[in-house]
Design a binder for these strands. Structure first.
Lengths: 207, 207, 207, 207
DNA sequence: CATGAATGAGTATTCATTCAT
DNA sequence: AATGAATGAATACTCATTCAT
């Protein structure tokens, strides 16, 4: 038992090392040019061991993406609350930005988009996770705000779509085409602009 | 003279064949996995001839993208007019969709996004062409509508950004992650939804 | 331990095979026309394995040259002694010939000369090894002969240069331009001629 | 007649252009890497025209070498005379140097040596022309000096071989292995050294 | 269970030579 | 006679995956 559990522990530690190394290399070089041998070297593991854990490069890639997805989902769920309505919205937007840039979700998206021809399932899953699930989260949040009387009653799914489109237009599209793109200096101003537009239409008039 | 012009004609015909074949293969397999030899074979040309026309795979790719860009720019400029304001907006949105799907701009974007790490200039150029230039076009159109009294005076650049974000959220993002994604059945309904939202905020009240 | 040492042994055996095959092919076809794939085939090894051992064709070439250099240096150091002065000189000259022809140093020089435009470091290193180092060896030997009273006191570096020039003029130059050139029948006579000239000028008069 | 002769003239002018361009490219890039297309371009001629004049790259190369040989032979025959014996010898040595370096004979030799495996005839011819013929010239000159009483009667063929070996040892061997090698600053001193050695053995004692 | 050496199939690019005009 | 576009064969190098130890 003890031996077995020790082995399992070591094994899962190696697995985590591999996934970390894979994320590192995939983000640095893209799927195609990231060499399995390099990933193994960075993870300090032999290629054979890597293949024991993941049957193929594709599988390793899928696992890597999933890992990031889970981490991102967790982080997104733990948003700091805000005192006022505008503050809450601002905080949510900031969390979004931090995920996209600090956790390099923009980079990951670029790779998944690149490979979505060859990995259709992966692409669809990522879309669900990174676009739909978040929109659903926003919809639910907006519903609460409506119930609380902070927002006018309205089609919250539509307004969530709005918000998502606006945020992406400002902060994600440029990053997809330019990997050196970082959070712009006037990000807060832009976020406030977006929120102003949103509140002008859907706000209940309270501050 | 005749000889020279004959040669130029044949040569430019071959060039066009090559670009067509390149677009085909790049869209099918992505930049990395599209083999130069295959492109040459599809174009019914030897690889050496291909390399006479385009010094490298990168150059060929850039030429392919540029070709599509020019075609798209031309087509976008020739939009059908509309009788009413809503019709005009609807037509513009439809033109946008036709470009993205019928000319496979979504696919091209996917490839450029995939390669923008390795081809930063290409990525930036495409962003300017496909995102900024179109937004500027929309901004100018909205300005005219304001001048005509069809829209309220407002920040047209912002509203154009809005429209772009909304359209992409519905019609481009899903396509980036799923190459089989086609124009949805309810596209017109979605477009109308977007326009309704837009007019509710910026319309001058006329039909 | 055993596994590791086993691997090392196998690996170094393959390395040696590759170098042998490379020497063979380079000598047969020259650097440019020797195909890496052919070298691998002759060594009974895949090209990938070859590239594991040597990062590039250039590196393989440098290693091949170095290998021969080391072997030649060793062999040159173990010259048979001679009873008389003339015999000693004759033996030295014969060792020189044996290296140039039996170990195909003439052929190797031809290739390095051919590539010295593209591999300047290799060319310079080989010149130092195959021309300067040997001349220094001869200079030292002559100094001893002077000290022993067998040769007149004189500028031994100059006389060594002499000897080197004479030997090359007879035995190396023809080989550079004609790969089929072998040790001529009258080599001993020519060597004796050279020694006679040398002794007539620098000999102390003893037999 | 006139038309025909005109054509012949133009044709031979083009031939000369091609040979010039070929010499240029071969010296710059070596035989293998000199591209026929580049030679044609430099000569301002189509490749087809080039192939009309020379059936193959090899043929062109042979013609190029021959051309240089002829030019060198001519130049070597027109040596400036000298007042004293030492001066005559010095002048001859200087002519030798000028050919080797200024006309880039060292570079040409390097290429011929490189290709002598594939072009045995060319190699042998060049050896005859550049080594034997010159040695015969020197032998004849030395014979005259003996007849004039300036040199002791001796085996002039042998002494000519001596001189050739010495000169090459100092000025040609380094250049073969290092293309950037130029005439050294102390060339005159080295030449005088060689001549001193020569005269010490073969001089008749007159200044 | 872990290793890392070995592999074979693949890829972009070059170049001497030919041929329709 | 002259052109230059077209070719096919060749070449160095890479990488996901396996297997003997």
């Amino acid at each position: 038992m003890t031996l077995e559990s020790y082995r399992r522990e070591v094994s899962s530690a190696k697995r985590a090392d591999i996934v970390r190394a894979a994320a590192d290399q995939f983000l640095k070089h893209g799927y195609q040019r990231a060499a399995v041998a390099d990933i193994a070297r960075v993870a300090d593991v032999s290629t054979a061991t890597l293949y024991k854990h993941f049957g193929s490069k594709e599988e390793l890639f899928a696992a890597t993406v999933e890992e990031v997805q889970n981490a991102v989902d967790d982080e997104f769920a733990q948003q700091p609350p805000g005192a006022t309505l505008a503050e809450m919205l601002h905080n949510a937007a900031r969390t979004y930005l931090s995920l996209q840039f600090d956790r390099n979700l923009n980079g990951l998206m670029r790779i998944v988009i690149a490979e979505s021809g060859r990995h259709p399932k992966l692409g669809r899953r990522m879309y669900l996770s990174f676009v739909n699930r978040r929109r659903d989260g926003a919809t639910a949040a907006f519903d609460k705000m409506v119930a609380a009387g902070w927002l006018k009653p309205h089609d919250t799914h539509l307004s969530a779509t709005f918000m998502g489109g606006m945020m992406k237009e400002f902060f994600v599209w440029p990053a997809l085409f330019d990997p050196t793109f970082t959070i712009p200096e006037d990000a807060d101003a832009k976020i406030d602009e977006i929120i102003a537009v949103f509140l002008a239409r859907y706000g209940a008039g309270h501050p």
